[in-house]
Amino acid sequence: MSQIKLKNITKFFDSKRILDDINLEVKKGEMVSLLGPSGCGKTTTLKIIAGLLNPDNGDILFEGDSVLNIPVEKRGAVIVFQDYLLFPHLNTAENIEFGLKMAKIDKFKRRKRVKKMLQLVQLEGYENKYPRELSGGQKQRVALARALAIEPKVLLLDEPFSNLDSRLRENMRDFILQIQRELNITTILVTHDKEEALMTSDKIAIMLDGKIKQFGSPIELYKNPISSEVADFFGEKNYIKGCIKDEMFTSDIINVKTDFNKYLSVKAMINPEDIKVFELQSNTDITGIIKMKKYAGDRIYYTISVNGVELKCISEPNELFNIDDKVGVNINFNNLVFFPIDN
């Protein structure tokens, strides 16, 4: 049975549709990401799951039972907000203890639990520090410990890494992932960062304009996006217009055999990492001219013009070319995805 299920959730703010028929299923112990640009309704979805907002339509099930009539404080879904929101008048230990105190758990048990939580987030010795004395990463860990202290049914993380600098962000990401695996706690992560979503999640739901566009495993979403909208979330892609006839895709630059024949006029998506450039040889079939070059240390971004079509490519750092160089282009057709051309 799924731990959390959203059924046809719809939400309006002043007659503006924020969420449109959201369906989502999260299994116990799973880490699911809601990936989308800001303003797409991700945070609203979290607030609805936690009970801070009521949906205008639809149902929320926890372990098979509707929780619509269960107030926020009894629902057992804790949000860790983007800006941590530690209570400024309480020290670290009191912050972590907060939920337990509200639940009127006796002092001895509370102490024990707080100690365990401090151990878990590796903040022993910080019991008496106030939030203003903590660094960003430490605040984040306190917020996490405070949420986990009450043993929630589901942990909701709202852009948890966006306020941290990049090094710390990677550390915290691994750290939270490790804790999530260790406690096997059902987690929903809201993010606008594709790497964060790909690297941490069991499943990703792509959200756009209040709708879930696609829901699946990271590999599924990356390899088989259902639309170019979804594909664009995972970085810049190449699209080549062409048509399919007699199991052949024909375009200005490539002709490939394919068993995809749902549409006549299509665009083919090629990932930049599936295009390779190499030194021009006499027998190369596709040639291009380097138009742009961005050196990023461990990889190089090239823009190549092939028969007037610009292709983006990510290349190995040792394949150094200069702008206006003539190069051979090799395209891996195994990962081609076709989308119908919308008129």
């Binding site: 801070l52 404080e73 804790v78 800006d83 929101l85 209570f87 939920g99 509200m102």
Partner: peptide
Amino acid sequence: ESMEMQSRVLGASKLQTFKHVTLPI
């Protein structure tokens, strides 16, 4: 209102939130 929301999701009732979070803040 964010602190109050945080308090509520941590299991505090409206009254508890007012007493332990709103008033001190």
